[in-house]
Measured scan of single mutants.
Amino acid sequence: MDVFMKGLSKAKEGVVAAAEKTKQGVAEAAGKTKEGVLYVGSKTKEGVVHGVATVAEKTKEQVTNVGGAVVTGVTAVAQKTVEGAGSIAAATGFVKKDQLGKNEEGAPQEGILEDMPVDPDNEAYEMPSEEGYQDYEPEA
């Protein structure tokens, strides 16, 4: 019985440690998101679009440190934060509304985080759909 109880105690310690790591990862992701939003706020009209992409990228980098179902929630929060940063930029006159959601080359930025393969159960990952990809044929 002692062996059984000791095993359960060790398992509990492992769960607590994993929860603490997840909590730490979420806190880091939130900190990076805040950094990115402050970065966007300090940019001029020309830099705002690039700044919004930076927020998304920093958040995406930190999301990889967070495991399990938390990833889905962090990704949703990050996307809403990026959308909010863009709205703030438009409201303050840093950028025109028609410039939001495009990178410096004018290509749409939507789907940055949505296409990231995420499995809350950590069982399997699927690649994003290939609808947006084109076949590449090298020139002879």
Rank of each mutant, 00 (worst) to 15 (best):
G67M: 12
F4I: 08
E13Q: 05
A78S: 05
F4T: 00
G67F: 12
T33Q: 00
D119F: 03
G106P: 12
S9C: 09
M5V: 08
Y136T: 04
K97N: 07
Q62I: 07
V40E: 00
M5N: 02
A78D: 01
Q24E: 05
D135W: 07
E20G: 02
I112Y: 05
E130K: 08
K6S: 02
A56L: 07
L100M: 05
M127L: 12
A140C: 13
T92G: 07
K10G: 01
I88P: 03
A69T: 06
M5E: 01
N122R: 12
G73T: 12
F4A: 00
A140H: 05
E83G: 04
E110A: 14
K58F: 12
K60A: 14
E130A: 05
A27Y: 10
S87R: 04
L100R: 08
E130C: 10
D98V: 03
E131D: 06
T33M: 15
V71I: 15
E57A: 08
G31T: 09
Q99M: 13
E61N: 09
A29E: 00
E105I: 01
A140Y: 08
T54N: 06
V82E: 02
L8A: 01
K23T: 04
V16A: 06
V118D: 10
E20L: 14
Y136M: 09
N122C: 04
L8M: 06
E35F: 12
G84L: 11
K12D: 00
K43C: 12
T72I: 07
E110W: 04
E20Y: 14
L8W: 12
E83T: 07
V3I: 03
A17V: 09
T64C: 11
K23L: 14
V95R: 11
V74H: 01
E114P: 06
G14C: 12
G31E: 07
G25D: 03
N65G: 09
E131C: 09
V55D: 00
T59F: 15
A107T: 11
V52W: 13
E131V: 11
N122W: 06
E139H: 08
P120R: 12
Q24G: 03
S9L: 08
E105C: 02
I112G: 08
Q99R: 05
Q109A: 02
A124N: 04
T92K: 02
V26K: 00
A29M: 12
K6Y: 02
D2I: 02
K102C: 05
A78H: 05
E61C: 06
E20I: 13
G132W: 14
G84I: 14
V37R: 00
K60L: 09
A30H: 02
A85W: 14
G51T: 12
N103E: 07
A30R: 02
K102S: 01
A124Q: 07
E105S: 11
G47F: 14
P117E: 02
E137Y: 09
V66G: 02
Q62M: 06
G68E: 11
Y136G: 08
Q24P: 00
S129L: 06
G47V: 13
M5L: 00
T81F: 13
A85D: 03
K32F: 09
V82H: 05
E137H: 10
V3S: 03
Q109T: 11
S129E: 10
T54L: 15
E110Q: 06
I112S: 11
A69R: 10
T44V: 10
V82T: 05
E28C: 05
A11W: 15
E46D: 14
K23W: 14
P108Q: 11
P120N: 06
M127H: 08
V118F: 10
K32D: 00
Q134A: 07
K45S: 06
E137T: 06
D119N: 05
T64I: 14
F94N: 05
L113W: 07
F4Q: 00
G31Y: 11
Q79T: 04
A90P: 03
E137K: 03
A27S: 05
V49G: 03
A56V: 13
A76Y: 15
P108D: 15
V55G: 01
T59I: 03
K97M: 06
G25A: 15
Y39S: 05
S42Q: 07
K12W: 14
E114A: 03
V74W: 12
L113R: 08
E104V: 07
A76E: 05
G36Q: 13
Q24H: 15
I88F: 02
K96N: 14
T92Y: 07
E61D: 06
A107N: 09
V52Q: 01
K96A: 11
S87I: 10
A11Y: 03
M5Q: 00
G67W: 09
K34I: 05
P117A: 06
V66A: 07
T22E: 00
D98C: 14
G106R: 07
Q62S: 13
E126Y: 09
S129G: 09
A85N: 03
M127E: 13
V3C: 02
T81W: 05
E20T: 10
A78V: 12
V37S: 01
K10Y: 04
E46F: 14
V52T: 01
Y133A: 06
V71L: 09
T75A: 15
V16M: 15
K97V: 11
M127Q: 10
L38K: 08
N122F: 02
G36K: 15
I112R: 05
Y39E: 02
N65W: 11
V63R: 03
T81R: 03
K102G: 04
D119Q: 11
T75G: 07
V95S: 09
E20M: 09
Y125G: 10
G93H: 07
L8F: 01
K102L: 14
T92E: 04
D2E: 01
V55N: 00
Y133L: 15
Q79G: 04
A78F: 14
Y39R: 10
A17R: 07
S87C: 08
V52A: 09
G41I: 06
P128E: 06
V66D: 01
L113Q: 13
Y133H: 11
Y39D: 01
T75K: 13
P108G: 04
A53G: 07
K21Y: 11
A124H: 07
D115C: 07
P117I: 04
M1E: 00
A69K: 08
S42I: 12
Y136R: 03
N122E: 13
G41Q: 07
F94S: 09
T72F: 14
V40G: 01
D119A: 12
K34R: 05
G41V: 12
K6L: 05
G132Q: 11
A89S: 05
N103S: 07
G106V: 05
T72A: 14
A107F: 04
E28W: 04
E131G: 04
N122A: 04
A69P: 03
G68V: 12
N122I: 11
E110M: 08
V52Y: 15
A90H: 12
K6T: 03
I112H: 08
A89W: 14
S42R: 10
V71R: 09
L113N: 01
L113H: 07
T64K: 05
K32Y: 12
S9R: 14
V82I: 06
E35A: 06
A11S: 02
Y136S: 14
G67S: 07
N65Q: 08
E123Y: 10
T75Q: 14
P128R: 10
T59W: 14
K43L: 11
V40W: 02
A140L: 11
P120A: 10
G31K: 14
K97E: 03
G86W: 15
A29F: 13
E61M: 06
K60G: 03
K10W: 06
K96W: 15
G111Q: 13
L38A: 04
L38I: 03
G47H: 13
V52I: 05
V48H: 00
E114L: 11
V63G: 02
V26H: 00
A124E: 08
S42N: 12
L100W: 01
N122S: 08
S87D: 07
V74K: 01
A85C: 13
G14Q: 15
N65S: 10
A27C: 11
K23F: 14
A89H: 04
K12V: 15
V49S: 07
E137W: 05
V70T: 01
Q99Y: 12
A19N: 00
G111K: 12
A90W: 14
K97Y: 02
A107W: 10
K21F: 15
A69V: 15
A140M: 08
V40D: 00
M127R: 05
M5H: 00
M116H: 15
K45H: 02
K32R: 13
G36C: 10
E137Q: 06
K60Q: 06
Y125V: 12
G14V: 14
G73E: 04
E105H: 01
Q134I: 09
Y133W: 11
E13F: 08
T22I: 15
K60I: 10
G68Y: 11
E114I: 11
Y133S: 03
A140R: 12
E105M: 11
G73D: 02
G47I: 08
G84K: 11
G7P: 01
I88Q: 03
A53H: 10
K80L: 15
Q62V: 03
V16I: 14
V74Q: 01
N65T: 08
L38S: 03
A140N: 15
D2A: 01
A90Q: 11
V70G: 01
T44A: 07
F4K: 00
K80G: 04
G25T: 15
A17D: 02
S9T: 02
V95L: 11
A90L: 13
N65M: 07
Q109C: 07
V48T: 02
E13I: 04
P120F: 07
G67P: 02
E83P: 06
V70Y: 03
P117D: 08
K43H: 05
V95D: 07
K96I: 03
